[in-house]
Design a protein around this nucleic acid. Structure first.
Length: 280
DNA sequence: AGCCATGTTTCACA
DNA sequence: TTGTGAAACATGGC
């Protein structure tokens, strides 16, 4: 589940390992993940020099000399720095690169490449130089969830009539929170996912603000979720034991020992402690 | 073995 | 504006 911590880490890894490299050729095995025809996509980025990478929410922006590669891993997937000889079985796109990777064995047919796989959904989009704002899916994104000040959060919540979970998952408000980390974020804040935003007190908003940063930071510090891997295939260190209440139905709440409940919240499930997160 | 439900996302369409 | 369903799939349970 690529959410904020994983996307942040992958972005840093791309910066550290791919800046200066040239995309020589591209294989697209899943045209539906593109925003333009396959031939246009490969023509646009072939020969491009990777210049920078940065994150907005769950999107990775790879800036090149020939425009932007915009990646969204959807419901999960991997970005692997590997080689032609070591390509994983499952991949949707492959970007073949110039030069040798220091982590790879040199060899004649061992051309380094960036393999991108989505488990389900996921996008690899292209935006031309200077036309990033025309890419609506990413242009609509709100600020990164970890970078919003308390005052900004308060003004975003003011007058909002929806429920808290819907707000937190709305990428046009805060970008980066998904339906995995949200369970612990709401638990840390002591708030029920279905709380109506216009009933939140100032203290509760402050708790929410702190919980967003804390919930994501814990995983960031440990290298991201255990079920995702980095560019070199290594799993994150944020383990099941590090999760407070998410995916722990029936187990005791770490604060009050009440059994954790799994509930339906619209189209998604939520895990809550019924006593620490009362609906009121 | 096969069918169904579920889910880490996002958008289009009521 | 907001809620529901659908769409590139894979796994586990019955």
């Amino acid at each position: 589940m690529p959410e904020f911590p994983e996307i942040y880490l992958r972005t840093q890894e791309i910066k550290a390992n791919l800046v200066g490299r040239v995309i020589r050729d591209i294989d697209v095995l899943q045209p539906k993940s593109l925003n333009i025809p396959v031939d246009d996509f490969t023509a646009a980025l072939s020969g491009a020099v990777i210049l920078d990478a940065y994150q907005r929410g769950k999107w990775i922006f790879v800036e090149t000399s020939q425009g932007y590669l915009l990646l969204n891993l959807g419901m999960g997937g991997e970005i692997l720095l590997t080689s032609r000889a070591a390509l994983p079985e499952k991949h949707r796109l492959v970007f073949y690169l110039d030069g040798q990777s220091d982590k790879l064995e040199p060899g004649a047919d061992d051309q380094p490449c960036l393999s991108v796989n989505f488990w389900w959904f996921g996008y690899a989009h292209y935006a031309a130089c200077g036309e990033l704002e025309k890419h609506e899916m990413s242009a609509k994104l709100g600020p990164n969830a970890t970078e919003v000040s308390l005052e900004e959060l308060k003004s975003m919540l003011a007058g909002n009539k929806s429920r808290l979970k819907n707000f937190l998952l709305d990428q046009t408000r805060l970008a980066g929170i998904g339906n995995a980390y949200i369970h612990d974020i709401l638990f840390l804040a002591g708030l029920h996912p279905l709380r109506k935003i216009d009933t939140l007190s100032q203290q509760e908003i402050e708790a929410l603000h702190a919980a967003i940063r804390k919930g994501l930071q814990i995983s960031l510090d440990k290298g991201g979720a255990f079920y995702e891997v980095n560019l070199f295939g290594e799993k994150g260190g944020f383990a099941m034991e590090d999760i407070l209440i998410g995916y722990r139905e029936g187990q005791p709440c770490p604060t009050c020992a009440a059994p954790i409940q799994k509930i339906k919240t619209g189209g998604t499930s939520s895990f809550i402690c019924p006593t620490c997160q009362p609906l009121v």
